[in-house]
Design a protein around this nucleic acid. Sequence first.
DNA 1: GTGGAAGACGAGCTATCGCTCGTATCCTAT
DNA 2: ATAGGATACGAGCGATAGCTCGTCTTCCAC
Lengths: 209, 209
Amino acid sequence: MARKPLTNPRKEASQARSRATVDALVEATARILVRDGFDKASTNRIADMAGVSIGSLYQYYPSKEALVAAVIDRHNRQIMRRVRTVLTEIASLPIESAVRRAVAVAIEAHRIDPRLHRVLAEQIPRVGQLQNVEALNREGYALFRGYLESRRGELRVTDLGLAAFVCATSIEALAHTAVLYHTEMLLDAEALIEEATRFILGYLQPPPG
Amino acid sequence: MARKPLTNPRKEASQARSRATVDALVEATARILVRDGFDKASTNRIADMAGVSIGSLYQYYPSKEALVAAVIDRHNRQIMRRVRTVLTEIASLPIESAVRRAVAVAIEAHRIDPRLHRVLAEQIPRVGQLQNVEALNREGYALFRGYLESRRGELRVTDLGLAAFVCATSIEALAHTAVLYHTEMLLDAEALIEEATRFILGYLQPPPG
DNA sequence: GTGGAAGACGAGCTATCGCTCGTATCCTAT
DNA sequence: ATAGGATACGAGCGATAGCTCGTCTTCCAC
């Protein structure tokens, strides 16, 4: 396997001026990733677009990968803030509305910055941040599993771990695919949400009657 | 968006000797992709591993991307041959066994060469082959949709297009995730297949009774 | 058996990459 | 006011990338 470059920031920025520099670098990285893709995102170009000298760039980030990792981090934080909130709120809801909310937030999360999300989804493996993203997936999975456990009596599934995996993976994939590759479906997002909800419920809930 | 390099082969190999050269190049590309990743797969290195001079490489492929595209192509062909066969066979099967077979073949297909599949899944967007892969997905989707239509009377879903999208996307995602990131699940692949089958059937079939 | 097309070769060009380091400027504690 | 740490600068180094082109070798139709 390939050797991993360091992806941690080099030092904290302590003065306001330098914090602005760091922000500009991360922002410029995100913009270049979206506009030109990972390959054309050279450190020189990033520094340029940030209006910062290449020397300053290397004061804060040891490599291009570290910069991309910072972008990923920022994006993930945005997503998880939203997902965590909603998946915590659903605890008190009945199954049907809980699942509907979960599906909706998955779509919402993917729509936060779809173009960036797409580039990142493609580039994350190369930056060696896969574990971190796996950790996020696992958190979503764990939150959902927690909910299932609290409602175990109302479910027809027995292996809640497996069920949570199946649900979380599918919901994520549906949201991901729809947002990134089938935007026309979002014109009637409600219909998609309803269908996905029926999908999940048909699996989780015992047949009526 | 980034400028696209040409990805078409440069010329056909007509003599046996040159066909061997082309094969060696594609094979070497695949091996280096798996072993070292896309970034370290330089044309010089590929030519080296193939035991072919760099000049010969450029006689047949105009760029590194073209070589990777050839690898993708070969791999996709392997996968689709299998998937097409099975999805055609299921036409005569009742829903339950048809879905089970479909799930099984999705997993099977991802297991053909998982390490290569993983690298390719990550790198395909950069090679601009996304449409081609989308075409494959659409073929899988269309085949499955055809089956659903032939059984429409036995289903509870109404929008078969949407249903096929939901099923195909989920099955693919479950197979993909399990094979690439949760190999421990494959120790009991039967259990996974059964669960996924229940999952899909709960959505497609009307409640019993 | 020979001429010309097909194939193979690899030194080396240009471009760009990631990155360092010596120097200049700014900020703040005293 | 000023010392000295924090911050910013950017010319330019070494490495490596993709790729060309002039030359040599092999194959095959006649």
